[in-house]
Amino acid sequence: MFFAALFQTLVGQVVTVELKNDLCIRGTLLSVDPYLNVRLADVVVTEPEAFPALLALRHSCTVRGSCVRYVHLPPDQVDVQLLQDATRQVASAVKAARVRPVGE
C-alpha cells in the first residue's frame, strides 16, 4: 500500500522495471495498483534480441507485481527524506496495530 503511494507520485515518469527473469522494460509509468502491478506506456525492452517476442509489444503493457525484481527509479523525482519519514510512520502504525490486542 505504502509503496503503491510512492509509485503513484511517479506516474508520468520514465522507470525501468526489471523482472525476475532478468527482462528489463523501460517505459512511462501509467498507473499502479495495491498489488504493485504496474502499467507502462511507450515500452522499450532493453534487450530485444533476448526476447524477440516482445518486439511486438510497442505501446503499453501491464506487469504483474509478483514478477518484479527491481524498479529503477529516477533519483531526482523521489524525496528520500519524505520516504524515510513515511516509512517510520507506517512501521510504528503497523506495530501498534499488532501489539495492542496482545498487551491488553
Binding site: 509509485f7 524498479v71 529503477h72 528520500v80
Partner: peptide
C-alpha cells in the same frame, strides 16, 4: 543502482 525499489519476496 542510483535508486531502486526491491520487491520483498
Amino acid at each position: 543502482l542510483p535508486l531502486v525499489f526491491v520487491r520483498g519476496d
